[in-house]
Design a protein around this nucleic acid. Structure first.
Lengths: 258, 258
DNA sequence: ATAATGTCTTGACATGGGTCAAGCGTGGAG
DNA sequence: CTCCACGCTTGACCCATGTCAAGACATTAT
């Protein structure tokens, strides 16, 4: 077994993909044991990021994609006037950096929302490996396809939906993403600030605030700071008009299919 | 040279990728001649679609991706209440269907906006070929990465921008996409109806109409039906706040890079 | 040519949600 | 423990954009 090429050697950093409870999520395709070992060899674990640290910044050269192991990140771009535009939140088991493949530079910055650790997967190695392991190529293409689909979905979720619908959709999306990794689908801690969330959804923070209140008054949820409990998921789904939408179980399901 | 496996044999349908003026666009990576021939063998040309014909429909099993050769298509999903939600327009040289890789079914329908012909690229073959031709795998991953990036960009273009900004962005996007294939960047024919365009941008058709008038009054453009002439592109760019945005030349440029 | 059908435009009006400006609460620093 | 600061909430107000309804125009069919 090769020496860990740890970017930084910390006591507890070594862990094989095969032992990782998130492995099914970040590369959701069956690889046999020897293939996983090949992958293991190229994956680097990094020292955890602290809240506010950047994993990469806009225009950084693209070297690797990243799988979130613990914590959470946001990706964002600076808009014309220098305002932050949040383009995504990334939870454990999710991959980020794929949008940089195209032109070899990161089109956005990724910042840790809390103490966060990631696996770094050098892309050159991965690409090379994907030529050898058909399942891996397939997996990669799937992940990217899902990403495209997800964005499209979100795009039209956010484009012409009311503030109410947007928040419902976002909450259900988090519910689902937490559920996917075995956590509660009804009670979770949002890793980002209200401001970040509202920014992401294209709403004013004030509007979000009012919405949270209204949802609470209507008994749809309980919010204590970042801790959220969804008490009436059905009603939320209804609000989100979720048929064929993010809140529905199609995403998690799709990822595992075939 | 192998027999053309044409889905339908029409008189003028046979044409090699290597002769195709759009080839650089649909697979923007250098393949050497023999590789292009391999690709050629799997590409099928289909009978042109007429206006209103579907290339595929939501939930159809995924078999192939498609490169637009001539004409234009729109992709759309049906929202909760049965309303059409347009998710994209696809012009010559562009590829569609990538969003279906993930779960083996098309998540949206693709309909021809005018007489349209496409190259059909069976995905199983392509995937297989990509294992043999590193450049092809790379190209595929790039294309998909670009797609993700594009969607992200658009998402946040549409999410929190004014109607004015959205239209400016859309017009510049078309300008650029026409320009990329050697057509005029300032004078072109929009292939879709106003209603389609407004739907796509998340605006009411009435709003679009008023905007077109206003832009015209301000001397930014000339619109005669679907024929559009951009007379003050700089001003439009300014309106779009286009730094780092769709209108900027980053996309076309990026596609060709490295 | 004329009718019929759909698409685009225009106007009047209503409203969701953005903006501005305070006030409140909580958690970290001293 | 106390203070400060930041993030969240609340209220008042207003504007951009959606909605409804009608009319102009264009395109196809008769």
């Amino acid at each position: 077994m090769p020496v860990e090429q740890g970017v930084v050697k910390l006591t507890t950093i070594r862990q094989a993909c095969s032992d990782c409870s998130l492995f099914q999520l970040c590369l959701p395709v069956a690889l046999d044991t020897s293939d996983v070992e090949l992958l293991d060899d190229i994956v680097q674990r990094r020292r955890p990021l602290r809240r506010g640290d950047y994993l990469y910044r806009t225009q950084d050269p693209f070297r690797a994609i990243y799988a979130v192991r613990a914590g959470a990140l946001k990706t964002s771009v600076l808009s014309y006037s220098g305002e932050e535009q949040i383009t995504g939140f990334h939870l454990p088991g999710e991959i980020l950096g794929l949008d940089a493949i195209n032109d070899n530079h990161h089109p956005c910055s990724a910042m840790a929302l809390e103490t966060t650790s990631v696996c770094e997967i050098p892309f050159e190695h991965l690409e090379h490996l994907a030529l050898k392991i058909p399942g891996l190529q397939q997996s990669l293409l799937r992940i990217m396809s899902k990403e495209i689909f997800k964005e499209q979905e979100l795009l039209h979720a956010v484009a012409k939906r009311s503030a109410e619908e947007r928040l419902a959709i976002a909450l259900l999306s988090f519910s689902q993403r937490f559920g996917r990794r075995g956590l509660s689908k009804t009670r979770f801690r949002l890793p980002m600030s209200r401001a970040d969330l509202s920014n992401y959804l294209g709403l004013a923070p004030e509007t979000m605030s009012r919405l949270f209140r209204r949802f609470q008054e209507q008994g749809l949820l309980l919010a204590e700071g970042k801790e959220v409990t969804l008490t009436e998921k059905a009603a939320l789904l209804d609000l989100a008009h979720a048929r064929g939408c993010i809140g529905a179980e199609n995403q998690a399901g799709a990822a595992r299919k075939a």
